[in-house]
Nucleic acid binder design. Structure first.
Lengths: 200, 200
DNA sequence: TATATTTTTGACAACTTTGTCAAACATTTC
DNA sequence: GAAATGTTTGACAAAGTTGTCAAAAATATA
């Protein structure tokens, strides 16, 4: 593998890349092994089974995400800055691993999924507090009035969808590389303009 | 199969259901055959290969969708009514076949995909005209000013994402069945409130 | 250096998936 | 009713995937 890092950690990192960045969700272990430059059996040695490896890396990624988000929910910034932070973090996250969300959906439909328990409710006190903040901002007239959870859904939608669907959208809407760059640049501003009441 | 309809058409319809509604995108032909209540070999008889069947039903669905949308783009309604029609149609479409879009993404990332050519640019005169209408509405101050294509992206995002990701969102945000029904009911209104400049 | 431990590899067997083929069955046509 | 055509089925072979195991290679330990 060529690096000085532990082999199992390298395999995990490359698996995350292979599955959730490149999107080879239903590839064989052999293909992953080729991508990672290791013998296929070695993956079994470290992780027993494909299913198990998947569970481990999936859990790590979800956990990392939950941690980052609750840190933002709980931090000392004012509401708008928090939304900024959420947008920045999630844009970065989705651009790095666009297929994590795809995998989420597919799993959430399976009854038998062992992974299902990983998609747990936020249920964090930080999240509940953030919902109250949303409500307060709505009362102040800074946000359009809706159910706070619906605000969250719209926020996620406007962040994730354009990134995840990017290749499809580019084709359908005939978006050139230049246009795409332009859109990417204005993403954050555009999202905020939709969600916040205009300031003038 | 029990119906009076042609077997091959029934298989296609049930395959659409199985793959794009239920989401069993990577199931075996045997599983599809069980679902459709036919002998597995019969599917080969009518469609030669799994790949071929997929291409056929995928193409049919995309074609139907493009037709419906361009009819709306070209119809005689005013702009807001057209947006209403788009929202209504796409909500119906995504709720019926939430996995069509998932499949789109996965395919769009594959270099080798024979299906790729199906995701063609809209390129229709009707679509180009609609983009101009968007621009006009922005000038009139009815819509927030952005790149018209970005308006389309936001529109698609706000329609599709909440539906496709519904099971995941319900878990993460702890949305009860009642809340979900409420949100569903207000979907259209909520989308329009975000995209159109407020009327008061 | 010799021994123990860990890591890596190739070979193997069980299993699944796929497409083909010929035979069985059903339906139409003469 | 017999022949021709179309539909459905079970059996089969080829290919691929997965996990295990014992042997080889590398590394650590005494």
């Amino acid at each position: 593998m060529g690096e000085n890092c532990k082999t199992d950690i390298q395999i995990k990192d490359l698996a995350k890349e292979f599955f959730f960045a490149k999107g080879h969700l239903q590839s064989s272990v052999q293909e992953l092994a080729d991508f990672a430059g290791v013998n296929r059996t070695l993956i079994n040695y470290y992780f027993r089974s494909k299913e198990n490896l998947f569970q481990i890396i999936y859990w790590e990624m979800i956990y990392e995400m939950r941690q980052s988000l609750s840190t933002i929910y709980a931090c000392e910034l004012n509401f708008e800055k928090k939304v900024d932070a959420i947008i920045d973090y999630l844009i970065e996250q989705k651009e790095s691993y666009p297929f994590l969300e795809i995998f989420n959906v597919q799993e959430s439909f399976k009854i038998t999924s062992k992974i299902e328990t990983i998609i747990r409710p936020e249920a964090l006190p930080e999240f509940k507090t953030f919902l109250k903040e949303i409500k307060a901002e709505m009362k102040k007239g800074k946000l359009k009035k809706t159910e706070p959870k619906l605000f969250m859904i719209h926020l996620f939608a406007l962040i994730s969808y354009p990134i995840i669907m990017n290749p499809v959208l580019q084709k359908i809407l005939e978006i050139s590389e230049d246009e795409n760059k332009q859109i990417r640049k204005e993403r954050k501003k555009a999202i905020k303009e939709l969600l916040f009441t205009s300031k003038n």
